[in-house]
Structure formats: C-alpha cells, structure tokens
Design a protein around this nucleic acid. Sequence first.
DNA 1: AATTAGTTTGACCGATCGGTCAGATCAGTT
DNA 2: AACTGATCTGACCGATCGGTCAAACTAATT
Lengths: 232, 232
Amino acid sequence: MGSRSAHHLCAKAMTQQNAENQETQTSRARDKVLERRRMILATIRDAAIDEFASKGLIGASTQAIAQRAGLTKPQLHYYISSKEELYEDILVYILDEWQELFLSASTGDTPADVIRAYVHKKLEYGRRNPNASRLFTTEIANGAPVLGRHWAPYQASTREAVGLIQSWVDQGLVRAVDPLLFQMHIWAVTQHYADFDVQVRNMMNLDEGEEPDYGQIEKEVTSLFLRALGIE
Amino acid sequence: MGSRSAHHLCAKAMTQQNAENQETQTSRARDKVLERRRMILATIRDAAIDEFASKGLIGASTQAIAQRAGLTKPQLHYYISSKEELYEDILVYILDEWQELFLSASTGDTPADVIRAYVHKKLEYGRRNPNASRLFTTEIANGAPVLGRHWAPYQASTREAVGLIQSWVDQGLVRAVDPLLFQMHIWAVTQHYADFDVQVRNMMNLDEGEEPDYGQIEKEVTSLFLRALGIE
DNA sequence: AATTAGTTTGACCGATCGGTCAGATCAGTT
DNA sequence: AACTGATCTGACCGATCGGTCAAACTAATT
C-alpha cells in the first residue's frame, strides 16, 4: 500500500526523476533522495488525513496541512500539485488499504469464522486509523463528490462477499438473509465505532483519554451478526 | 419543533420585536410581519442544512446559503447573526427533532413491538430528512466541535433506553445483550441508510433517481435485531 | 402627507484562501 | 573550488471569505 502512494503523490517532484535523466548522480545518492521524499510524502499524507478528517475537503487549508507536517506552504506545494489532488490521492490510498478488509473466506472456514475475522479486522482498523475512517465517512456523507469516480474495485469486492453469503444461505448453513444488506449492516456497525468515537465515548461517560472496551464491543458486534445468521 | 427554531434563529430581527415596543402597529400587521419572518427563517434553515450537509461548517459559504434561500448576503445577515450561530442553531434544531425518535415503550408493548417501531421511525426520518441526518453525521465524524456542548438531553434519552432494554433482559423476555451497545447498533445501521445513501445506491446498482427498496431494508434491519434478541 | 418600523441594496472592510515565482540555499559530484 | 540538481523561502497574486454599513426603499399607521 505504501508503494501505491508513491505513484499518486508528489506529481511535480517525481516527474523530474521519472524522466530517467542521465547518471549525473550515483545511485546511492539518488536512493537517499528518493527515500527522503517518500518519508516527507508519508508525513504530508498523515497530516492531510488529520486535517481533512476534521475539516473536510473545502474546510481544510493547505496552510494548516503544511504546518502540521512541519513544512511551509510553498514547500508543501513543491511535493504536491494541488489540494484537490492530494485529497483524491488520499481517498484512493485509503480505499486501497480497505481492499484487504472485505469479507473473504479460505477453504475450511465456517461462516462463523469468516464473520468473526471480518468484524475483528474491521474494528481493529477503525481503532488504529480513526481519521482515515472519518475522512472516508465525511466524503460519503457529503455526497461522495470526489470518490464517486473511484469505487469500481469496491463494487467487485462487494459482489464477491454477496456471493459468499448467498452460498451459505443456499447450502442451508445459515438462516436466510439478504446478503447485500447483511454485509452493509456489518460495515455500518463496525464503521460506527471509528467515526462516532466522540459520541460513543460520550454515551459511555468516558473521559478524554479513556478508550472504550473493544473486547466487549467486538464480542457484542460479533454476537449480533452470528445470531442473525442463526449460528450462535 | 417549528416553534423552537423561532427562538434560536433571527437574533437581530427578533430583538427589535421582543422589546415589547409600544403599540404603533395594529396586531394584525405585526402578526403578518412575524409570519413572514418565520417563513424566511424556515427557508434559510432548509437551505443551510443542504449546504452544511454537503460542505461542512467551514466549507459552506454564507453566500451560497443566501443564494439557495433566494436572498442576498446582507439580507441573510439581517435574519441571522453569524454562520457559526446558524450552524449551532440548526444542530440543536435537529437534535430536538430526534428526541421523539428514541426507543420508548408504552405499557403493553412487547420488546418486538418497540424494536419494530423504533427501526421504522428511524428509517423513515432518515429517508425524509437525509440532509439533516448527514449534517449531524458530518459534525460528529469531524469530532463534534460544536455539538459537544449540547447533547446532555441526548444522554438522558440514552439512559432511559438502556434501562428499558436491561429490564427486558432481567425479565428474561429477550436474550442477554449489552443494552448500550445494542442501542448504538440500531442507531448505526439505521443512520447508515440516510448518511451513506450514495454508497448504498451504488452497491445496489441504482440510477440517480431510483430509491432503494425501503420495505426490504426495514424488514432486514428489524429481523437483524429481533434475532439478536432471540424473538424472531 | 407625514411618520414610523421593517427591509433591501451596493459598496466596502480586513482576513484568509490556493497557488506561484524568482532567487537564495543546500548537498553531493567532479 | 566550481558546478549541478534538489530544496527552501519571502514576497506576492487574484479570488473569496464572513461580516458591516449608510443610504435607499417599502408598507402600514396616523
């Protein structure tokens, strides 16, 4: 996933390198420069995710992103070409990461195994990358103005998961459910714990630093969906 | 709920009236003026909800809100005092509407009745007020910077619902669940259909104008939670 | 006709926005 | 030391932002 971001970001700085210019520098020095760029771009991405997640595309300022990344504004624009493009790159980057987060089964897995693993992975991701999760949610809640053109692969994964669940139903392994809606429900509930963290913590009367009991949450969420399938 | 908004909005225009000035106008004329203001304020609110829902607090411009409401910018500021205040008022207004949307039981209702009614009301509200729903979600996903000071009543309703569900468990009417988490799960799933409408329609391969089959959705969502309680 | 309260308007304010640019500075190579 | 490509900087651009204001206008009352 890290490799992909290198393709997207840093349009300006990279094109100069991609031109395969003659060997004026040793390859050691060139690698050092590239490595440095990769790190800066990763820093920018992280800073931008934070800003975009809490302000939205229009609300976030390049000024603030630069500052949070420890750069000046012209410096930031040396590595990225525009705010919109940075935003779009980040969305695709997040979408990339999520490809591994879909319902998928290895041979021998029971439906219960698959659901348990999915819920676990999804909750874990949200807990570790709350801002990426929120950025994504804000984008969709705002009508997916940018993302709209990019979720073709998303659809493929969805269809795969639908087929999997349907096969369980057909084999009589689980109670009948609408596979598409069932999948969305898991997505909705797990997503909730990342996106609405503030609300969740408020309902639980937790202080600023305290974290919800994710063990309990995972148990309850898993139970919810296993019961719906009649396998708990 | 409409009456409440009259208290919140229109700081400037109202203070002049609230001063209980001497009877220089007949009450008929004054009523006419007040009625006109109420309508304009409702128009502003609707326009602002749309704008805030798709751009966020910072991203939405008073210019755009005014234009969508058929007003000029100075005209808008004649009725509202500031963008932040308008935003806050709208959040509180939405929160007000939602007070009626919580889990609540009349005597004689079975748990299944209560769940069914709640899911129905919640889905119906989201279907009819998608932008209000999205505005709320965006605010929370962005860290609830404004709303944070306003959800005390929200907490009370939550505790009430927790008590209700817990009593079902204690009486042995339903399978054991964590009442707080269970309630949040219903909230998450129903909210999902309003907030992620774009994504839902995309997954279902629906065209722009088409609406998802809410009959099927309500059936599946209800079923999910009834099964979790062991009462379906 | 004169008065009054309520409303609308165009011009305007300082601040910030995304983005640019010429030139200074830096690091590495010869 | 001279050179070269990569990086950084302060000053700057036009556009838009939220918000204000005096002056004009409207409609009802006396």
